[in-house]
């Protein structure tokens, strides 16, 4: 556990909500509007934290534990992610499996909390969330396994550390496939278009948003912060592959990493502005395709 790793974790906590601001500004640019301020998500979080929470009488401790457990799990997963060339806070052989399952635990807590409210809409959202993430998880794991095959190592630090400009020259096809798969997982897990529309206000079409309809005040703030950190986490995976800057100077490395994440957020804004979300029935095909891309990347890394 080094100071550099902790500093990067702090930077993630501080900067993650900024990604939403960049996405919103990009979408506003495409729509010809001025858009909300870049720091809007921080204002929202501060406002929510000042408010009190309202709990329905049908809910139990499960509902109250949901946001806390989910945020804690995402934080734990974030501690496993090596950022900008520095080792992660924790790292050991096979920790990428723990990363995937900590994300699964976070999802499980959110889903339980949604089911605990007894609302039909939230149950529907929970069912969709579980269905889609069950398809996205193999894609994530296969992509990480493909990278592990490239590195011949099992800890996230060496897996991501082994990706360099040299790898891109040698194995460009396989790395492109893995990156594409991770990008689809990134969009699906963060409930962005084309899988889910975060700005929709119709319960029938919502997936992630509908699960947190009953959360209020500080609970909602925890949920929103967890979502921002998850976006930082999965985005960090993509950026570590696409922009493997290892200059040795921590400031340049960190700057390149953050710039990559902001560019990724802008790309998400472009995707959301230029395409419609898929019909729910077509979403599994997209996620299965992401899994296929990752599997193909693994096959290419392994043998050819």
């Amino acid at each position: 556990m080094t100071g550099a790793a902790l500093a990067r974790l702090g930077a993630a906590l501080l900067l993650a909500p900024l990604l939403y601001g960049v996405i919103a500004r990009t979408k506003a640019f495409f729509a010809g509007r001025t858009g909300a301020p870049l720091l809007q998500r921080y204002f929202d979080l501060a406002k929510l934290l000042r408010k009190g929470a309202v709990y329905s009488e049908t809910t139990t401790w499960v509902f109250r534990a949901g946001p806390v457990v989910s945020l804690a799990a995402v934080l734990g997963a974030l501690a496993l992610l090596p950022m900008a060339g520095a080792p992660a806070v924790f790292g050991f052989a096979g920790d990428f499996v723990l990363l995937a399952y900590l994300l699964g635990l976070a999802r499980f807590a959110t889903v339980l909390a949604a089911l605990d409210t007894g609302s039909a809409f939230e149950g529907m959202g929970a069912s969709r969330e579980v269905q889609f993430s069950a398809l996205a998880e193999p894609a994530l794991l296969l992509a990480l396994v493909a990278l592990a095959r490239n590195a011949h190592e099992l800890s996230l630090g060496s897996i991501l550390g082994a990706v360099s400009g040299e790898t891109w020259r040698h194995d460009a096809a396989a790395l492109t496939l893995v990156t594409a798969a991770l990008f689809v997982v990134f969009l699906a897990e963060n409930s962005r278009v084309p899988v889910d529309d975060p700005t929709t206000h119709l319960e029938l079409t919502m997936i992630h948003e509908v699960m947190v309809l009953d959360s209020s005040g500080p609970d909602l703030a925890l949920v929103e912060l967890g979502a921002a950190l998850k976006m930082w986490l999965l985005g960090g995976l993509v950026v570590s592959i696409v922009v493997p800057v290892r200059s040795g100077n921590p400031w340049i490395d960190l700057g390149a990493f953050v710039a990559g994440l902001l560019a990724l957020a802008a790309l998400v804004g472009v995707v959301e502005s230029t395409m419609a979300r898929l019909r729910l029935l077509r979403v599994p095909a997209l996620l299965v395709s992401a899994g296929v891309l990752a599997a193909l990347g693994l096959a290419l890394m392994a043998e050819w």
Partner: peptide, 17 residues
């Protein structure tokens, strides 16, 4: 050649989908 072959595989999958 390698990249083109991977492209061919992807086109095959797109045809299926």
């Amino acid at each position: 050649a390698h990249t083109l072959l991977v492209g061919l595989i992807l086109v095959d999958f797109m045809l299926l989908a």
